[in-house]
Simulated scan of single mutants.
Amino acid sequence: MKNIVSSLLEKVIEGNLIDANEALELAENAETTELLEASNKIRNINRGNLVNLCGVMNIKSGKCSEDCRYCSQSAYYMTNVKSYDLVDVDEVVEFAKKYQEKGVNCFGISTSGKAFSDLNKEKVYDIYKALSRETTMRLCGAHGLLKEEEAYRLKEAGLCCYQHNLQTSKEFFTEVCTTHFYDDRMNTIKYAQKAGLDTCSGGIMGLGETMKDRIEMTMTLRELNVMNIPVNTLNPVEGTPLGDRPVSITREEVLRNIAIYRFIIPKANFIYGAGRVLLGEEQHMAFRAGMSGIVVGNFLTTPGNCIEEDVEMLRNEGFMLTSDKGSYAI
């Protein structure tokens, strides 16, 4: 009789989707090595050996009106994060070009704050227009809650993909943030898709959520047809409500979660994001568990790995960068 891993692997390879109960059974009963090997097989079938390199730049920092309990940029908490308003267009273009020279094929810019409508929108449009002229990278933006007409304007300016994380399940979200609603986040994703933008949305492990919460979030992403999914682990920031507690997830749990996410959405581009320092020298294992993208360089408010070291790690694992082929995987 087939065990749970081989049974669900066969189901996925045949083109069928697993449900939440099956994913939970996988989480509770699968042996780790077998689970990772199966997920790696699913990744290889659906994504091949191509990996996206994503670079990010925070172009407006701090003084955010939202109370997200993990976030160093929230005005509710006393952190050491530097606050600044929108940076100049030329500075963004110069920064982006340096990433492109190092093989980055997707460049994301982020702004602190609740909603895109709170920004100097015309300046943001000008930044995307300049990036479209001066670089060949795929452009991604994360600017908070979005209105439908704003999504159309961003696409016209050159934006390719809108990034807005769900962070966790709908049930657990009120433990993470109380100043806006989960439905606001889902509506932002829908507005971006209606405007013809690709969407990028994921979550954070280690906020105090359960495995059931993580699975439910991933099921919601599947229902929303989100195909670019950052996988982050909490990196506690001093001064935030979650900053004085140890990360409540182990290395093995991180890898198992990545694998289960791949089982749930086999064709997605799972992007290795913030908090990967938790895996230490075993960061390469995330790709054996099912990852197909990686955020390189620094993160929004925390330092990351050297780009060259990440590239070397990927090549040692037998992966090819999408920039090597002159194409973008989404």
Rank of each mutant, 00 (worst) to 15 (best):
N225S: 15
E10R: 06
Q73E: 02
N105Y: 03
Q283H: 09
E25T: 13
E34K: 14
N228E: 11
Y152W: 09
V104E: 08
M217V: 07
P230I: 11
P241R: 06
M57I: 15
K121D: 00
G141Y: 04
L8G: 03
S169I: 02
D88T: 13
K121N: 00
R133E: 11
V89H: 09
H284G: 12
K212Q: 07
S323I: 04
A259P: 04
I13L: 13
M291K: 09
V89C: 12
Y70R: 03
R251H: 01
H143Y: 03
L139H: 08
G203H: 12
L50V: 09
I189L: 15
A130R: 09
N257P: 06
D184Y: 02
P236T: 00
Q167E: 13
E148L: 06
R256E: 07
D67H: 01
G275S: 01
N40C: 10
I260R: 03
S292A: 08
L9G: 05
R69M: 04
A151D: 01
L314V: 00
Y162V: 06
T179V: 01
E28L: 14
E238Y: 15
M219H: 07
T301D: 11
R251N: 06
C177F: 07
C64Y: 00
I264G: 09
G275A: 00
R47M: 14
G141L: 05
G243T: 00
F172C: 08
A20C: 00
I4E: 09
E282R: 06
T135K: 07
G55L: 09
L224E: 09
G141I: 05
Y99L: 14
E175M: 11
G196M: 13
G103P: 00
N80I: 02
M57L: 15
T111E: 07
G141R: 07
A286G: 06
L279P: 06
S74G: 07
I258N: 03
T250K: 07
F181Q: 15
S7P: 08
E122F: 06
V104T: 09
N225W: 10
E34M: 10
F107S: 08
Y272H: 15
K63Q: 10
L278Q: 06
T178R: 14
V176W: 12
E317K: 13
E209M: 08
N44K: 15
V311I: 12
Y76G: 06
R43I: 10
Y272V: 07
T188R: 06
P230S: 13
G239A: 12
N58L: 11
S110H: 05
G15D: 05
A268K: 10
K212L: 12
K121R: 08
I258K: 02
S169G: 07
N80Q: 08
G208H: 05
N257M: 14
R47F: 10
A195P: 02
E31Y: 05
L159Q: 01
M219V: 11
D85R: 03
F319I: 10
